[in-house]
C-alpha cells in the first residue's frame, strides 16, 4: 500500500473495498478468451422475466433452501437471531420478510438444506483468489471475468477488483447488461480488456416489459464504449429467449445496431436454458415464465441471419 503514494488520503485502499459475491468459478472456459475465473457479483438493476440467476438480483445475501433435504429437525429455528424460522409438517419454514441472510441456520443445518447465497468479501480477498490461477491465464490467454448479477451495481467493488488485477498484469473482462451511468463505465473501463455486452431487445417498449427498464441508456453506453474506448474488445451477447426476443425482426434489428457501432464485433447468440428453474423454488420466489429452449435449427437460422448482415456470430459463448 505504501508503494502507491499517488492515492489520496482518506480514500479506502482498493484491497479493502467490500462487496457481495455469490460465486467464484475457476476454470471458467466460456466467459471470454482462454482459461478464466469468473467472479459473480450480486445485485442487478434489471429483472428479466427469463432470469435464470434469481439469486443474483438482490445485493444482500439470501437463503437458498433445499426443501427435499430438510428433515424438520429444528436446529435452524433454535439459532435464528430474527426468529424467522418455524417448523411445520416436518419442514422448516422461513419468514423471508424477517430473514436477513445472516446464515447461522446454514452453519448448523446437518443436512445441507440451508445455504446462504452471497458472501461479503473485500476486493483484496477476491483478487487473491483469482490471482492464484495467474499461471493458467498466462498460458491460455485468459484472465478474470466479472459477471453477475450486474457488476456495475457495485461499481467501487468491481473497479477495485479490476484495478488490482490490472496492477498484477491479469487480463480482465466485464460481463454487463449495460444499464449503468456513463461515469461508472468511464471510471472502470481503463482497467478492462474485454466487454461482454448484453442486448436483450432493441424495442424500447418490449425491453421495458421484459426487463423492467428502458434500453436507451444501454444502447447509448454501447455506442460510447466502442467510440471512446476503441482499444477494448467489444463482444455482443444476445440471449435468445423464445417468444420474448427471438423473432427475426428483433434479431435483425439488434444485429443492424451492432453493425452500426462501426467496428468488427463478434456476436454470441446464447440459447435460453431452463437451468435456473429450481433456484426459484430454493429462494421461495414465484417461478419464472415457462419457456421452452430454442431448437438448434432456430439458433442456426438466427446465426445465419446475423452473419448475413456482415457480422461474425457463434452460438454459445
Amino acid at each position: 500500500m505504501q508503494k502507491q503514494p499517488s492515492r489520496k488520503k482518506n480514500v479506502k485502499p482498493a484491497e479493502n473495498i467490500q462487496g457481495f459475491v455469490f460465486n467464484i468459478q475457476h476454470y471458467s472456459i466460456h466467459d471470454g478468451p482462454g482459461i478464466r475465473t469468473t467472479v459473480f457479483t450480486k445485485g442487478c438493476p434489471l429483472s428479466c422475466v427469463w432470469c435464470q440467476n434469481p439469486e443474483s438480483q438482490s445485493i444482500a445475501p439470501q437463503l437458498f433452501f433445499t426443501s427435499e433435504k430438510c428433515t424438520g429437525c429444528g436446529a435452524c429455528a433454535a439459532v435464528c437471531p430474527e426468529n424467522a424460522i418455524t417448523i411445520a409438517d416436518g419442514k422448516s419454514r422461513t419468514n423471508r420478510l424477517l430473514c436477513k441472510g445472516a446464515g447461522q441456520c446454514a452453519a448448523v443445518c446437518p443436512n445441507e438444506a440451508r445455504n446462504i447465497m452471497g458472501k461479503q468479501m473485500t476486493a483484496g480477498e477476491v483478487f487473491k483468489d483469482v490471482n492464484a490461477d495467474a499461471v493458467f491465464y498466462k498460458r491460455s490467454g485468459g484472465g478474470v471475468t466479472i459477471s453477475g448479477g450486474e457488476p456495475l451495481a457495485q461499481p467501487d467493488f468491481t473497479r477495485a477488483i479490476f484495478r488490482l488485477c490490472k496492477e498484477a498484469g491479469l487480463a480482465t473482462a466485464l460481463d454487463t447488461c449495460g444499464h449503468a451511468k456513463w461515469d461508472i463505465f468511464k471510471s472502470l473501463l481503463p482497467y478492462v480488456d474485454v466487454v461482454l455486452y448484453d442486448f436483450k431487445h432493441l424495442d424500447i417498449g418490449a425491453h421495458w416489459e421484459l426487463t423492467g427498464v428502458s434500453n436507451e441508456l444501454i444502447l447509448e453506453n454501447a455506442g460510447r464504449i466502442t467510440r471512446e474506448f476503441p482499444g477494448i474488445t467489444f463482444v455482443a451477447r444476445i440471449p435468445v429467449v423464445p417468444s420474448c426476443n427471438d423473432d427475426k425482426e428483433n434479431i435483425s434489428r439488434t444485429a443492424q445496431f451492432i453493425k452500426e457501432l462501426g467496428k468488427p464485433i463478434k456476436v454470441h447468440l446464447l440459447p435460453y436454458h431452463r437451468l435456473g428453474e429450481t433456484k426459484y423454488e430454493r429462494l421461495e420466489k414465484p417461478g419464472t415464465l415457462k419457456i421452452t429452449p430454442p431448437t438448434e435449427a432456430h439458433m442456426e437460422e438466427l446465426r445465419r441471419l446475423v452473419e448475413s448482415l456482415g457480422l461474425t456470430a457463434v452460438i454459445g459463448g
Binding site: 468459478q25 472456459i29 466460456h30 466467459d31 435464470q52 437451468l275
Partner: peptide
C-alpha cells in the same frame, strides 16, 4: 463432476 451448464460450468 463438472458439467457445462449454459454460459458457465457448474
Amino acid at each position: 463432476l463438472i458439467v457445462r451448464v449454459a454460459g458457465y460450468s457448474a
